[in-house]
Structure formats: structure tokens, C-alpha cells
Write a protein that binds this DNA or RNA. Structure first.
Lengths: 189, 189
DNA sequence: GAAATGACTAGAAAACCATTACGGTCATCT
DNA sequence: AGATGACCGTAATGGTTTTCTAGTCATTTC
């Protein structure tokens, strides 16, 4: 396998496991079985490497979400399926969990920036999808960016904050059903 | 004026201006024109004093919000008015802004706890109001606690986080109109 | 003598500093 | 020519000292 790919995989593993701050370039090099200097022939610096990885994960997520959207299904059905997909994605990819945790705990500039980037990407992705349905006349003419933002932030709040004040965490289905019942419900014509 | 009241006002002033951590008991005593020991004859400790003040502000806010709710108006109208009132309240009371900022920056246990308390109080207040309208048959049978939670967290996200990634902050009216158009819109029968 | 006070104390936080660790470079090696 | 790891300067860490402050209590005040 090519060295660039090896490095990317090693770095993904380490960032997911230990976070950005606690991952050293030496460690990545060791896992990837390359010299530290080799990493720098492919990536300008640690930050750029991190960004590339995050970008890949985002792309993968978009693809997964897009895959479940069926032409023949209604907006509500598709929204439900896509949302479910993204929720389950979050569970599997520890990287996102790590990023969120690290942003709160250490305030590493690179991490803060990347988290903003991720949010930006997700919001604009959701916005795009909603806009499509607005143009198709299936959804009311709302401010799609605000809707997307509310969906993301609401979701994050339910997943990250809810259990700080409540005994039982919400299941993915409860969250999705609730969004279905309120926000999505208000959008259809 | 009685000493207890003087202390409360001095402490409110200082907490609002400098936050919990940066306010010293000596400073409160000086502003209130009492000896430091006197504070402890009225309040067990700094934390209790802080809690009492926060509780007072919450109570005041509830009263203000309740005041604008009119028996003869519709759910949507009342929701809109109450929300507007709470938004404007937030602007005027720097204390809340300080608490949120301090929670993020310093993680003072007392502040984290108080912020959770405030959120709890606001959510249960909103929930109560929604439940009333559900019982009156004006609102669909939704999970009112989730709605209340989403309203609060969504609102906080729009106010605190939106301008981190966007040039122009959202006006109170934009936020309220948006909630009106989506969440509240989905609730009415 | 009941209430108020501020000097005092213990423990927590900040400032300081010595040491380590790490990101990034580059002379050397394969 | 491409890979490498010893090396460098800087940033993070952690141990130590100093400062600060919440809370107490002996003394004062009215």
C-alpha cells in the first residue's frame, strides 16, 4: 500500500483513540511504519493532516446519508432515514466524539476550527437537501439554513447535554421521532 | 434598608459585572458597606448567596413571561410574546451572560451547577405552559419536555454560537419568527 | 449582650521556573 | 531521490513557592 495511505490510516486510528492533542507525530510514524520525516513529505504539518482526515470522514458521511435518500420516497421518509443514518454514523466514528470532547476540555485552536468546519459542512449539506425539496414544492419556503442549524444543534444538545440533567439518555429513535414530529412536520406543505 | 437586602444587591452587582469566580466576599462587603463577617450571618457561604440571587432572577423572569400571556390570545400569539419577553430579559440581565461565559471558560463547579439549575427551571416553566395548552386542546400531544428543551437549546445556540460562524448575529425577531414558523407552527392542532 | 466586624488561618489558586516533550527541519543514509 | 531519525527551538508539563480568599472567631460596638 502507498505510504500516504498508510499514514492517513495510522493517523485516523490515533486521532480517534487519543484525540488531536494527545497524538504525536512520532506515534503516527511508528504505527504507519515510516520515519517521522516521511509524514512531512505528504502533509505540511499536523494540522493539515488532521484536516484531511476530518474532510474524508465528512465526505464519507455525506455519501452514506445520500445513499439512503430514495427518489420515490417522501420528504419525511427521506429525512427520517438520513437522520437515522447520521446518528448511527456518529456512534461508530469515535473521531467525532473525541473532537467534541477535546474541544470542550482543551480548547485546542486546531480542534475548535475543525469542529466549526464539520458543523459548517453538515449544516450546508442539510440545507442543500432541504432546498431541493423546497424547489420541488414538497417543503414550505422556510429559511433552510436556520432549519439545518437548529437540527444540528438540537441533535447535539440531545445527545451530549440531555443526560447531564436526566437519568436516561435519549435513544436515537426517540430523537429522530421527535424531530419528525415537530420540525419536519412543520416543513411539509 | 436592611443589611440582607444591601448584601444581595451588592452581590448581584458584582456577580453580574465580574462573574462568580472573580467576585470576592470582601468586595461584596465593601460595596454593601458591611463587614465581611456580616455576610455570613445571613448566608452560609458564597455559593448559597449566589444561588439565592440566581433564584430571584429566575423568579422575576417567570413573572415577566407570565405577565405577557393573555387568556384571550391564541397559543401562537402567547408563545411569541413570551419568547420575545425572555429574549429581551436576557439582554438586560448581564448575569446570565456572565454565567454562560464563565461556565465555558472556568468550569467552576458552582457555576456549572447553577447553570444547570437555571436551564432546568426554564425548561420546566416552558413545559408547564405547553402542557396547559395541550390540555386545553389547542396544541398537539407532543413530548412537551423535549419541545421545551429544544426551544431552550436552540435559542442558546442561535444566540451564543451562530455568530461564531456567521458574520451577522441573528436579531431577536429573526429567532422568534423562525421558532414561530417551525416549532410552534408544528404544535398547533 | 446581641450584632457587627476585620485580623487571622488553612487551603486553594496563581506565579514562577526547571525540566521534559514535541512539532518541524535537514544532514545523512539507503 | 526519497526516506529517515538526530537535532533544535519552542511550547507544554509539573513541582515548588508565593499570593489570595473563603470562612472563622475573638474583640468591639452600640
Amino acid at each position: 500500500m502507498d505510504r500516504r495511505q498508510e499514514i492517513l490510516e495510522a493517523a485516523t486510528k490515533s486521532f480517534s483513540l487519543f484525540g488531536f492533542k494527545a497524538t504525536t507525530m512520532e506515534q503516527i510514524a511508528k504505527i504507519a511504519n515510516v520515519g517521522k520525516g516521511t509524514i512531512y513529505t505528504f502533509f505540511d504539518n499536523k494540522e493539515v493532516l488532521f484536516q484531511e482526515i476530518v474532510l474524508r470522514v465528512i465526505t464519507e458521511m455525506k455519501q452514506e446519508a445520500t445513499k439512503v435518500i430514495k427518489k420515490e420516497a417522501s420528504f419525511q421518509e427521506n429525512a427520517y432515514a438520513a437522520l437515522m443514518k447520521m446518528l448511527e454514523f456518529r456512534d461508530t466514528h469515535q473521531l467525532f466524539a473525541k473532537i467534541i470532547a477535546e474541544e470542550q476540555e482543551w480548547r485546542t485552536p486546531a480542534v475548535i476550527q475543525v469542529k466549526a468546519q464539520i458543523e459548517q459542512a453538515i449544516v450546508s449539506f442539510i440545507k442543500q437537501k432541504i432546498d431541493k425539496y423546497i424547489n420541488a414544492g414538497e417543503v414550505r419556503q422556510v429559511n433552510s439554513e436556520l432549519v439545518a442549524y437548529l437540527l444540528l444543534k438540537g441533535y447535539l444538545a440531545f445527545v451530549n447535554d440531555w443526560n447531564l440533567t436526566h437519568e436516561k439518555p435519549l435513544t436515537e429513535k426517540e430523537i429522530t421521532d421527535f424531530f419528525q414530529d415537530t420540525i419536519f412536520h412543520s416543513l411539509i406543505l
